[in-house]
Write a protein that binds this DNA or RNA. Structure first.
Lengths: 222, 222
DNA sequence: GTATACAGGGGGAAAAATCCCCTTTTTACA
DNA sequence: TGTAAAAAGGGGATTTTTCCCCCTGTATAC
């Protein structure tokens, strides 16, 4: 039972080649029983989609979040719809509550910060390979804090309307809300409504952090 | 002459443990002649400063840019003043003209994107070890474009003081200026002074666009 | 038919950000 | 060692942002 016939196939999705290559070395180093096989690497979500067109499929995907073209959120979303049996382990430097909760809600099996020790990554792989879960410390904290009392987190509301998206872009510029309202031919009060809706959805408290969110998630380009 | 008696000491400065560990494996893999020795690792500039208190000193330092506490710019600046013979190879995911030029002006020996191939990194190490330079493609482009005709970039005014940089980072968060003042143990009026100075230097008109600048130029991490 | 959701809009007030002009303290360095 | 910048701090005012509670159509679901 221990020495199963087939190896566990792993895929890596991360936009930094150097990080992928290093990670592969680390996985192989810790893999004394030769359980794992690196099936493929992808640079972003789109790349992953291509490589998931036909078998063989990976058992576990190590997934970054911030990537050009198609980020980790979209990629995981797509995976859940098209390959629901594939297990995702997020390996990201993003440590915000929002990111962690969003990923966990989508059903990823693990969440690792890039800060963690090599041993933790191997533990995470072990856990996930044997149908478990593994969250690094920070993710566990977030999970605990948000499970009690906080029933509010809105699963679907992460969707932004056309207007909200447009407003969000303009909110990253020098324009005042008044000027944005003029440009969008809407009342400043409506704009204020968008602002409040976005603060809620994006879990931010100021225009500055709202703008930061927009950059982080590729809604505006640098 | 080929087999010099002493190994080349390398230090790594990057806030992501996983990346450091992977990088070390990659360096050792490509180091068939066992020329390199990993002297130490540091998580950020401050950590580096501590480890540079006494010998042995590294010959080459692989330096990230975005790091908490003390970032790559500050660290390189400090190194140039205190250990001018140490050669710095920047390994960052920041690819903005500004970041590259700034580092090159400070005299780093190489600039690598984290996207590069493993071989490029080994080439860079080779080059720098033998008193050369190595810039990855993107850095070379930037260099070429900015050497001809473009004398305009304001060299002095781009300099941000320690405090200004700290303030700029905090200004990208939810904190109010009052809270930033408290955190930095300064009067809100002084903070307001930093704000005005930065608006001027960065050519922006609002806190939002100031924050955008900070992101664009890699002063804060995403 | 009636509840429900949601985009658009409004009043009004408190908090934060922005601006301009000015004084004191520190620091650099010729 | 004197002096001129920087850096730090202040007064006071305007503009913008942020918040909270409310109203109206108009779909859509049940």
């Amino acid at each position: 039972m221990k020495n199963a016939s087939k190896k566990i196939n792993i895929a890596l999705v991360d936009d930094h080649n150097l990080f992928r290559k290093g990670l592969i070395k680390l996985i192989n180093m810790g893999d004394t029983q030769q359980k794992y096989h690196i099936l493929f690497e992808a640079e972003n979500g789109n790349d992953l989609k291509e490589k998931m067109m036909q078998p063989p499929f990976p058992d576990i995907i190590l997934m970054d979040i911030d990537m050009p073209d198609m980020d980790g959120y979209e990629a995981v979303d797509w995976l859940q719809r098209t390959h629901p049996t594939v297990k995702v382990l997020v390996v990201s430097m993003v440590e915000s509550d929002n990111a962690i909760l969003r990923m966990l809600r989508m059903g990823v099996k693990g969440y690792l910060s890039k800060d963690i020790e090599v041993e933790d990554m191997n533990r995470a792989l072990e856990a996930i390979a044997s149908n478990g879960f593994y969250y690094s410390e920070i993710a566990t904290e977030v999970l605990n804090q948000n499970l009690m009392g906080n029933i509010k987190p809105n699963p679907a509301s992460l969707y932004l309307s056309e207007n909200e998206r447009e407003f969000l872009k303009l909110a990253t510029t020098e324009m005042t809300y008044q000027q944005i309202a003029d440009k969008m031919n809407l009342s400043p009060k409506t704009i204020d409504g968008y602002r409040e809706a976005l603060f809620q959805k994006l879990n931010v408290k100021t225009r500055v952090t709202m703008a930061m969110y927009a950059v982080k998630h590729g809604i505006v380009q640098l």
